[in-house]
C-alpha cells in the first residue's frame, strides 16, 4: 500500500514538473547564466597566488551544480504550497495516506530535477573544456551528491511551504537562500577569503562543504576528506529537511 502510494505520488510530482517548462527552463538557464557571467568576469582570479585550480571555469562549475538545487527547494516548496492553497492536500488527507509517502513522492520530482540539472551542467562544463579530475566515476558520484543535496533542500522548501501554506512566501525566500549560497566558498576557496567575518560565515555555512565536495571531484580528483564532509553536509541537510517536513506535515494534516 505505502509503496503504491509512494510510486503514484512520485509519478505525479515528476509528471507535474515535466509539464511546467516555465519551472524547468529557468532552473537550467539561470544557474548557467550566473555561471557564465562569473566565470568570464572572474576568470583572472585563477592568477591569485595560491589559487587551487588551473582555470576559474573548472573551479566555478560547482557553482551551478550546487546553486541549481536551490531551484529544487523552491519548486518543491511552491508545488506543495499550491497543494495546500487549492485543498489538494486535504483531498489526499481524506485517503489512508501516509505522510511520509506524500513527502517522498513529492520530493521525487525534486530529485528528478536535480538529476536533470547536474547532467546538463556537467555537459555544459565538458563543452567549455572542464576536465573532471575524478573521471567518469567521479562524475557519477558528483551527480549523486547533487541529487542528495536537492533532496535536502527540497525538504527545507517543504518545511517552508507547510509552515506558511503560501507559494508566494516560499518564493519570497528565494533571494534569502541565494544570499546564503554566496556567503560560502562558492566564488573563492575559503583560505583565499580575506575578510574575517566572511571567512567565519563561510566556514559555518554548510553550503561551503557541499560546494567543496562537488568541486574536489572536478579540480582535485578523489579527495576523501572533502567528499566525506560534502556527503555529511548533504546527509545533515536531508535529516533536518525531511524530519522537519514530516513534523510540519503532521501538524498540517491534523486529522483525527
Amino acid at each position: 500500500m505505502i509503496l503504491t502510494q509512494v510510486s503514484q505520488l512520485s509519478r505525479r510530482s515528476i509528471v507535474r514538473l515535466l509539464r511546467q517548462p516555465e519551472v524547468v527552463v529557468p532552473a537550467l538557464l539561470f544557474p548557467l547564466l550566473i555561471f557564465g557571467f562569473q566565470a568570464a568576469g572572474l576568470g583572472p582570479a585563477a592568477d591569485i597566488p595560491g589559487f587551487p585550480a588551473d582555470s576559474y571555469v573548472d573551479f566555478l562549475l560547482a557553482f551551478p551544480l550546487v546553486q541549481g538545487t536551490l531551484f529544487a527547494a523552491v519548486s518543491a516548496g511552491t508545488d506543495l504550497a499550491k497543494d495546500i492553497e487549492t485543498g489538494f492536500l486535504d483531498r489526499l488527507s481524506m485517503t489512508p495516506m501516509q505522510p511520509l509517502a506524500l513527502l517522498v513522492g513529492m520530493l521525487a520530482g525534486v530529485i528528478c530535477l536535480g538529476l536533470l540539472q547536474s547532467v546538463v551542467f556537467i555537459g555544459v562544463g565538458l563543452l567549455v573544456g572542464v576536465s573532471f579530475q575524478a573521471g567518469f566515476l567521479g562524475a557519477l558520484v558528483l551527480v549523486l551528491l547533487t541529487a542528495l543535496t536537492a533532496l535536502g533542500f527540497g525538504g527545507v522548501g517543504a518545511i517552508l511551504a507547510l509552515r506558511t501554506g503560501s507559494g508566494e512566501a516560499v518564493q519570497g525566500l528565494f533571494p534569502l537562500l541565494l544570499v546564503s549560497f554566496f556567503l560560502s566558498s562558492i566564488l573563492l576557496p575559503r583560505d583565499l577569503i580575506q575578510t574575517d567575518w566572511f571567512r567565519v560565515v563561510a566556514t559555518y555555512n554548510p553550503v561551503s562543504y557541499l560546494v567543496e565536495g562537488v568541486r574536489s571531484l572536478i579540480i582535485t580528483g578523489w579527495d576523501v576528506q572533502a567528499l566525506a564532509l560534502g556527503f555529511a553536509a548533504a546527509a545533515g541537510l536531508i535529516v533536518v529537511g525531511l524530519s522537519g517536513a514530516v513534523l510540519s506535515l503532521r501538524g498540517r494534516v491534523a486529522r483525527t
Binding site: I48, P175, F182, L183, L187, L188, F198, A202
Partner: peptide
C-alpha cells in the same frame, strides 16, 4: 527591505568575499 538589502549583499559577497582578487598580479 529587499531594495536596501540587495546592494549590501553585493557589497558583502563581492567586495568582502572577493577582496583577494586585488592580489592578482597586474591588478
Amino acid at each position: 527591505i529587499p531594495a536596501l538589502l540587495f546592494p549590501l549583499f553585493f557589497l558583502a559577497a563581492f567586495a568582502g568575499g572577493l577582496s583577494r582578487v586585488a592580489d592578482i598580479p597586474s591588478f
